[in-house]
């Protein structure tokens, strides 16, 4: 079941593509943000319990990632969708870089007034980087593919 939104079929459609709210798109638009927000919720609970006063949780980034996931779900198979995907991957890489995860090979340190906690996850980091590299490859290929069709139009 697909719903086309006719008034968006203007020039802008060449960048954004035709928004298709099919079941797969709705699921993609919902699952990603639900995962990000769920993760944020549990991490914030965990941090409030064991490390009160720490600023590990980044609500703004989670909201941006959720928004990008929703737009990717709606405007899929478009240049905008690919760029949104690349942006989200860049933000995630930036998050890992900012947390010194990459330089310390999967170690995150957080400190409060008297307690210092180091979390090491090298295996998980390798998996995360692999998935993110795959995502980057996918979005780069999507950008190339959509650019071709964009020029063809």
């Amino acid at each position: 079941m697909t719903y086309d939104i006719p008034y968006l079929k203007a020039k802008i459609v060449r960048v954004f593509g035709v928004p298709k709210l099919d079941l797969k798109g709705i699921l993609e638009a919902l699952v990603g943000p639900a995962c990000y927000l769920g993760l944020l919720y549990y991490v914030s609970l965990l941090v409030n319990t064991y490390l009160p006063g720490s600023n590990v949780v980044n609500l703004q980034l989670t909201l941006v990632l959720s928004a990008l996931a929703i737009t990717r779900g709606i405007f899929k198979d478009s240049l905008f969708s690919a760029v949104a995907g690349l942006t989200s991957v860049t933000l995630m890489f930036n998050l890992l870089y900012q947390a010194d995860c990459l330089s310390h090979f999967g170690a995150v340190q957080t400190t409060t007034s008297s307690v210092s906690v180091v979390l090491k996850f090298p295996i998980l980091l390798v998996i995360i980087i692999t998935v993110m590299t795959l995502k980057t490859l996918l979005y780069v290929l999507e950008v190339i593919e959509n650019s071709k069709s964009f020029r063809a139009k």
């Binding site: 993609e28 993760l39 549990y42 692999t130 996918l138 290929l141 593919e145």
Partner: peptide, 25 residues
């Protein structure tokens, strides 16, 4: 090729997120 990579990436992302959420929970 994009569809195949997309499918693999989606599955991997979902599994990874499910694992991370289960760990945090």
């Amino acid at each position: 090729r994009i569809k195949t990579i997309g499918l693999v990436t989606t599955c991997a992302t979902l599994l990874l997120l499910a694992f991370i959420i289960s760990v945090v929970y």
